[in-house]
Nucleic acid binder design. Structure first.
Lengths: 162, 162
DNA sequence: ACTTACGTAACAATAAAAGTTGCATAAGTC
DNA sequence: GACTTATGCAACTTTTATTGTTACGTAAGT
């Protein structure tokens, strides 16, 4: 089954936004994520409802974080994404008329609930600030070389690309 | 994201097979699961490779368990299903050229790996015998009434249906 | 005015899963 | 030995979810 990579993608986007500081356009972000600007807007619109990012129109507009990195947990972002399914497996029927299925559901639900709880608990303990710190450490470890697949300053990318 | 319910479905099928004792045709199983016989064969063919079920052709043929219930764990079945994805989320890229993404992947992988390990550990501790016992307990609790959505003896179903 | 950028709806393309058909093969029945 | 029942399997179709795309509207800055 295909995995949902929106959480991973959003984290990537938010951290880059944090690095850049100034507003980033959905066009620039789309290039970075190798996707379409409208897709970016769709996802970020959700985050805006939860006051994680702000958007501004017109010249010099774009998207930026509107909270401090250390106040945003992975769980906040998970919620802003509308709490997508965590587990790739589920029960065939939630309200079975069959006692066999009841027994099966019961066993699986126990296991599933534990795994979900564990994941959510983890999400609550990780902040964007921690991820950012980890990133900066990796930069150091590579001697600030900053050899990226894409630049932190997407204006440059746009100039180079095509 | 749509959840994969094959594990749930297979458990349902196997427990019914255990109850019935005699071989069950893919036709009968398909009716039970409200699906197509070929779909049933596809899934059970996988289980057969792992010696969990046997199939026989011709009159009186069909599918039956070929191991004792207490020797089959959920993990065995999970493996026989080709170890399908457990988590509905994943990383955007597994081998990022971007340090931001590396940091993101690292954080998520830690959480994901823990949750997967927990699920698999749970799968290893649950046997079909336990599920069967749970089922029989539920039967008792309902006074052996056996009010099911579908009969345990699908020959009756077939006669009634259509 | 003109350009830049988001906002949104509607539509198209892709991809994954499930269902379906058709025919071959094997096993038991008469 | 012809017939019926069943699985085995490949090819194809349908369905559904996601993602990408186009088009046009609105707001902000130049």
């Amino acid at each position: 089954m295909k995995r949902d990579s929106r959480l991973s993608g959003v984290l990537h986007v938010l951290l880059h936004m944090a690095e850049v500081g100034t507003p980033m356009t959905s066009d620039a972000l789309a290039k970075m994520m190798k996707t379409n600007p409208v897709v970016i807007r769709r996802v970020l619109a959700g985050l805006r409802e939860h006051q994680l990012v702000c958007s501004e129109k017109g010249h010099g507009g774009g998207w930026k974080l509107c909270r401090e990195l250390d106040t945003i947990t992975l769980h906040d972002i998970y919620q802003a994404l509308d709490e997508p399914t965590l587990l790739a497996m589920g029960n065939r029927t939630e309200s079975p008329g069959c006692l066999v299925e009841e027994a099966v559901n019961n066993a699986l639900n126990n296991a599933f609930a534990e795994a979900e709880a564990l994941l959510l608990a983890r999400f609550r303990t990780v902040t964007l600030a921690q991820l950012s710190a980890d990133f900066h450490q990796r930069m150091q470890a590579r001697g600030f070389s900053g050899t990226h697949e894409h630049s932190l300053f997407p204006a440059d990318d746009a100039a180079d690309a095509e």
